[in-house]
Amino acid sequence: MKHFHVRQVSARRRRRRALSKFPVYLCLVPALVFLVVFSYYPFFSAFYHSLFKWDGVNSTFVGIKNFVDLAGDDRLGPSVKNIFILTSAGVFFALTLPLIAAVFIHNLKSERMRTIYRFVFTMPLVIPWVVTVLVWQFLYDPLDGPINRFLIAAGYPEFVRAWLADPDIAIFALTLIGGGGTGVGFPFVAGLNLLVYLSGLNNISSEVKEAAILEGATSWQMFRSIELPLIRTQIRINLVMTIITQLQAFHTIILLTRGGPGYSTMVPGMAMYQDAFEFSRMGYASAIGVVLFAIMMVITLIANNRLRSSTDFDPN
C-alpha cells in the first residue's frame, strides 16, 4: 500500500515535471521558428542550389559546373586583385592609425579629454555610412568635387583626375572610403577598431602599469612591452573583423562604380549581386557565396589558432 502510494506520487511528480517543461519550450518557439525559416533554410539552400542552374523558380542539377565556370569567369581575375588591394589596405589601416590613436587617448592625462575624444571618434559610426559614401562620391566628382577644385585653385591642374572613373586609380580611390559598415574610412581613426583597442587597453590592470612607471619605463617601452602584448586579443579581433568585412563588402562599389569602368573595381560580392539580380543566375551566385564562405572560415580558423593568446577573454 505504502509502496503504491510512493509510486503514484513519483508518477504525478514526473507528469508535473513534464508539464512544467512545457512553458520552457514555449519560450524557445519564436526564436527557433525564426532560426529555421530565415537562417538555416537559406544556409542549406545556398549549398544545395550551388549545384544547380537556378533562376529562383526552376532549377536543374548541373553538378559542380558552377564551380568550374567560376574558375573561368572573366571577373575572377579583377575580383581577386581588387579584393586583395581593398583587404590589404583595410588591414594596414586597421592595425596602424586607430591603434596609435587608441594608445594616445588611453594615456592622456585628462580624464575629460579621453571622454571627449572617444565621443568624437564614435560619432561617425552613427552617421549612416551611405551618407559617408555619397559624400565621398561628391568629393571625388571630376568637375564639381572639392578635391579637383582644390587642385585647380592651388595651381596643380595636372593632378586632376576622374577619381572614380579612371580604371587605373578607381580602386585606390575606393580604399580611402573603406568597406562600409565598420565606419572605417579616411583617416581611418574613427570607428569600431578604435573602440575595440580602447576596450582592450582599459582591461589592462592599473597595477601592471603603475609597476612599470615606478620602474621608470618610457611610454614607448610601456607600449612595446605592456600595452601591445596585452591587447593582442583586440588586435586579432580587428584583424579578423576587417578581413571578413572587406571580403564580402560591395556596398561602396555598388553605390559608386558598380564594378566599372570595365571590371576595374569588380569584387566578388558585386559579381554575386550581378549574377543573382541582373542575370537571374541564382545557382551560380550561390556558388560564389559558398566559395566566399569557405575562404572566410579558413581565415577565421587560422587567425583564431595562430593568434590565440593568454589574454583571450572566455565568453563563458
Binding site: 544556409f43 554575386m272 541564382m282 557565396g289 564562405f293
Partner: peptide, 24 residues
C-alpha cells in the same frame, strides 16, 4: 545542442545566405 545551433550562425556571413533568403 539547440544553443550551439543558434551560436554557429555567428559564423555565417550574409553574403552566403543573401540569394536564397531573397528567393524565400
Amino acid at each position: 545542442f539547440l544553443f550551439m545551433l543558434i551560436i554557429s550562425l555567428l559564423m555565417v556571413p550574409s553574403v552566403l545566405t543573401m540569394v536564397p533568403a531573397f528567393v524565400l
